[in-house]
Design a protein around this nucleic acid. Structure first.
Lengths: 198, 198, 198, 198
DNA sequence: TATGAATGAGGTTTCATTCAT
DNA sequence: GATGAATGAAACCTCATTCAT
C-alpha cells in the first residue's frame, strides 16, 4: 500500500499499521516501533516529524490507496448498475484483503488524532466523490429515488462496513454470495423499480 | 445514564465520557479526570481498579442503557412493522440525544481496550437480541426475505450509524423526515413486497 | 508475646509481625494491615500514632519478651556454667519457637527505622545485660579469659544467630545435640581450661 | 567494587549503595537516586529493568567482590592455620574497608527483596565454598573436631559479623589486636588441641 | 470506639523526542 | 543517513493518614 514511499518509510508505516491493529495506538510506543520495524528511533525522526505525523501519513496513504482501489471498479466502462456493483465489490474486497488498513480507517476516521487537513486530503483522494457522482447520475436517470446522494452512499457504506465487522468478529460468515445479495439489497433499497430489478 | 451507580462513580463515569469524547483516551489522564470530576485520584482508585476498569465499566453501562432505551420501542404492543419503526427510531434518538455515549460505543466496540467479557455482558443487556427476534418473526411471516437476521440487523444498524456520523460531521442535515425515510429504506431493502409498502 | 497490650493492639501487632515476615516492610501497607487484622485503618490510628510507631512498639515488645524468656534461664539457681548453658539454650529456643519475632529483631535491630530510644528501652528489658554480668562473673572467677564481656557475648550470640539462620535457610539441620555442641564450643572458645571442660 | 560494569551502571550502583545505607530502601526513591547519581530516571531504566533489578544486581556484585577479596587470603600458599587466619582477616578487612557493602549484604541476605537466583549466583561467586573446603581439610587432618564444616563456618562468620556490628554501633572498639584474638578464639573453639595452639 | 471514604503527595515507570557520535 | 544513549515531563497508581459519621 505504500509503494510511493521511501523503503525506510514503508517499513515504518507497515509496522505501525500492524502494531496499532494488534495492540492499539497507546500501546504502540516509538521504542517498540523502532524495534519491530528495524529502524532506529533517531532514524524514524529523520523520516517523520512526530508520532502524530506517522499516524496521519498512514491514514492518508491508506485512504488514498483504497480510493485508487475502488475507482478501478467505478471507472470501468459499463452501465450505472454495473459500476454500482463493481464499486461496492471493490469496497468489500479492500476490506477483506487489506483488513488491517480497513480497520485502521474505520477506527480513526472519527478520531481527533487525525488532523482535519489529513481528512480533507484523504477525501480528495478517496472514492466517496466518484461514488457520489455515480449516485447523482442514477438519480438523474430516475433509477434511484430523489435523495441526497451523499446520504445514500453513507447508508450503503455503513451497511457494508457493518457486514464486514460482523464477519471479522465471527458473528456470521460472509460468503461471496452473501456479498452479492447485500449489494443487491443496497441497490433495491433506493431503486425506483425494485421489483423489476430483482 | 448511570443511575445504578454510586454518586462518586457517576461523577467519574460522566466525566470520563465527556473527556474521551473531547480529547480521546490517551489524552485523558487520571490527573485530569480527577480534577474535572472533583474526585481525588486516590478516591477514584477506591471505586475503580484501574483506568481500564473505568473504561470497561463505562462501556458496559452505556450499552446497557442503550439496550433499555431501544427496548422501549421494541417491546411496545404493535405490528411487526410498527415495532421495526419504533425500534430504529429509538436507536436514532439514542444516537442524537446521547451523542457522546453513542460515539464512545462506536469508537470502542472494536477496540482491544474493551475486554471480551465486557463485550459479552454488553451484548446480553443490549438491544441486538430482541431486534434479531423481531427480524426472525418478520421472516417467518414472509414479510422479509430469507436471510440471516443478524446480518440484516447489522446492515440496517450500519446504515443508521453512518447516517448519524455524517450528520455529526455536518456532511448533511438529518431531519426527522430524513430519518423516517431512511428507516423506510431499510424496511424496503429486505421486504418481499417493497412496492406495496411504499 | 503481646499479653500486656489491649486486644485490638494485639491483633495489630501480631498481624504486622506476620506480614513483615511474609512480605517485608515496604509491601506491608496500612490498608493490608487493616484488612488482615480485622481492624479498620481509622481504629489502627486510634491505638497507634503512625506506622513507624507500630513497628517500634513491635520491636520493643519482642525484645522485651525475648528478654523475659532468656532471663528464665539466666536467673535460675545454678553454677556459672549451668546458667551459661541455660541462657543460651533459651536464646536458641526463642529463635526456634518464635522464629518470626527472632527474624524481625535480626532484620531491624540495625535499621534506622527503629528509633534510638526504642533500642535503648529494648536493651534495658532484654537479656544482654544479665548475660554480660554472667560473663563478668566468669572472668572474675578465672573461668573465662580476660576479654571485654560485651564482645564475648556478641561473639557467641553471632554464632548462635548464624546457626539458626543456616537452619532456617535449610543449609543444615539443627538438632538438639548440635545445639548442645554449639553452646559447648562457645564455652570452650573463651574458657581458660578448655581441655578439662570437654 | 563495580569495575566490570558500564560507567553509568557504576554510578547507579554506587549511589544506590550509599543511599540505602544512609536512608534505607524505602526512603531511596528513584527520583533521589537519579539526582544523586547524575543519571536521569529514564536512563536508569535503560540500564536496569526496575528498582528491584538494581538492588539484586547490587547484591550480586558485592557478594562477588567480597568473594574475590576473601579468596585472596584463602588461596595463598601456607598451612591450614595460616590460611584460616588470612581468610578471616580478609573477611574482617572487607567488613571494615567496605562497610557499606558489608552492611548491605548483612541486611538483605535474608530479605525476600533479593531473589533466590541472585542468592544462588552470589553463593557460587562468594567465599563460603572455599572456606568450607579449608575446614574439611582441617577436619581430615584431625586439626578440627568432627562437625559439619558448613555449620562451623557459619558459627565463626556469625561471631565476626557481630563483632563488626558491635564495633559499628560503637558498643566497643575493635582493634587489630582484638581481631587477632577473636580469630584465635574461633580456631580454638573447634580445635582438637586448644592448649597447644594457644 | 469504630468505620472506611477521602485526600493528594509522592512512588515507580514509560515515552516521545533529541543529539552526540 | 543512521544509531541508540540520554532526557525529564508526565503517566498510572499507592499509600500513610485524616475526618465525618
Amino acid at each position: 500500500m505504500f509503494e510511493q514511499y521511501h523503503k525506510v518509510q514503508q517499513a515504518i508505516l507497515e509496522t505501525t499499521l500492524r502494531l496499532i491493529n494488534q495492540k492499539e495506538l497507546q500501546a504502540t510506543s516509538m521504542a517498540l516501533l523502532a524495534k519491530e520495524s528495524g529502524v532506529s528511533t533517531g532514524n524514524i525522526y529523520h523520516y517523520f516529524q512526530s508520532k502524530e505525523d506517522i499516524i496521519n501519513e498512514l491514514y492518508k496513504a491508506i485512504v488514498y490507496f483504497s480510493g485508487q482501489f475502488v475507482r478501478q471498479g467505478l471507472d470501468k466502462e459499463g452501465s450505472i448498475r454495473e459500476r454500482f456493483y463493481w464499486g461496492w465489490e471493490k469496497v468489500v474486497e479492500f476490506g477483506r484483503q487489506y483488513s488491517q488498513g480497513f480497520q485502521f480507517i474505520e477506527q480513526y476516521s472519527f478520531s481527533p488524532y487525525i488532523h482535519e487537513n489529513a481528512k480533507q486530503e484523504a477525501i480528495a483522494g478517496g472514492w466517496c466523490d466518484p461514488m457520489s457522482k455515480l449516485y447523482t447520475e442514477a438519480i438523474e436517470q430516475q433509477l434511484f429515488i430523489n435523495m441526497d446522494p451523499k446520504l445514500m452512499v453513507q447508508l450503503h457504506y455503513g451497511s457494508l462496513v457493518y457486514a464486514l465487522k460482523g464477519h471479522q468478529l465471527s458473528s456470521f460468515v460472509l460468503t461471496n454470495q452473501t456479498v452479492q445479495t447485500t449489494i443487491q439489497i443496497c441497490w433495491n433499497s433506493v431503486s425506483r423499480q425494485a421489483s423489476i430489478d430483482q
